[in-house]
Simulated assay, not measured.
Amino acid sequence: MIDLAGQEAAYARDGYAVASVFTPQEMEAAQADVIEQLDRVASALHHPFEHSRPDLPLAQRLDAIARDEKAYANLLRLAVLTDAHRGPRLTGLAQNPKLRAVAEQLTGRRLQAAGNTIRLRASFAAFPEHWHNWHSDVAIDDGSDCGRLNITSWIPLMDAGPGQGGLEIAAGRQSAPFPHVRASDFHIEPAALDHLPRATPHCRAGEVLFLDRFTPHRTLPNAGPARFALVVWMKAA
């Protein structure tokens, strides 16, 4: 058993937990997959490569590009979020046995070793329209393949929390999803969550935020450097 310092009880009560799984060095190394994808796409365009600001750290590049050319920055944003998760370092994080071991200990269930859904997510000050509204990762528990999702592993590649592109959580373990409304997105109306306490956990690089499938959460406003996170939606075996 892994010593989770009381996080099992917190997860059962609150529907989320933060646990140390990786090292800051592993997170920094994984950022190379994002940088390589950004550089690869920028190099393939007619646009001069230097306009992609390779002189800046990853957390500053897209916001700096957007100040001059938002459409170009958005193209690069979409390319990175569409395909960077296939890089070897990010794939290695998602498939790391330590991640599944912690998730299984929190849920008390066997989880798939492969075949989980993996994506890269990011929060940019320049693109507030892409911050996520309140939702849970399973919105309709109808027995479909999506409903087999058991737990989400949210793995920030850099420190994340209030003011750093973190998540806000409506805490409390739920037995079913809150109703979602389909508008410009698929979201939970905030008034439906008024009775729940809110949490804004801070995750240091190397820590993972584990979310139950019915736990409502949303992206906090981010006025600072960009935050990238690998998300692994883990299904029951």
Rank of each mutant, 00 (worst) to 15 (best):
L4K: 08
L4D: 09
L4R: 11
A5D: 14
G6L: 07
G6M: 08
E8H: 12
Y11G: 09
A17K: 10
V18P: 07
A19E: 05
A19V: 14
S20F: 00
V21E: 00
T23N: 11
T23R: 13
E26A: 15
M27V: 06
V34M: 00
I35A: 11
I35T: 08
Q37N: 10
L38F: 03
D39M: 01
D39T: 04
H51N: 07
D55P: 05
L56S: 03
A59D: 06
Q60I: 00
I65T: 01
R67P: 00
N74R: 11
N74M: 07
L76W: 03
A79M: 09
T82E: 14
G87Y: 01
G87C: 04
L90W: 03
G92F: 07
G92V: 08
V102D: 09
A103M: 06
A103S: 10
E104M: 13
Q105P: 05
R109I: 06
L111V: 12
A113W: 08
G115A: 10
I118R: 13
R119W: 05
A122E: 08
A122K: 06
F124P: 00
W131C: 05
H132Y: 10
N133T: 09
W134V: 01
S136R: 05
S136C: 14
D141Q: 02
D145P: 04
G147Y: 00
R148L: 15
L149S: 13
L149F: 11
T152N: 15
I155F: 04
A160V: 02
G161V: 02
L167A: 11
A171K: 08
A171Y: 03
A176Y: 09
P179E: 03
S184H: 09
H195P: 00
A199F: 02
H202F: 10
H202T: 12
F210H: 12
L211W: 07
L211R: 11
T215L: 14
T215W: 12
R218L: 05
L220D: 04
A223S: 12
G224E: 01
F228P: 01
V231L: 09
V232Y: 03
A237Q: 14
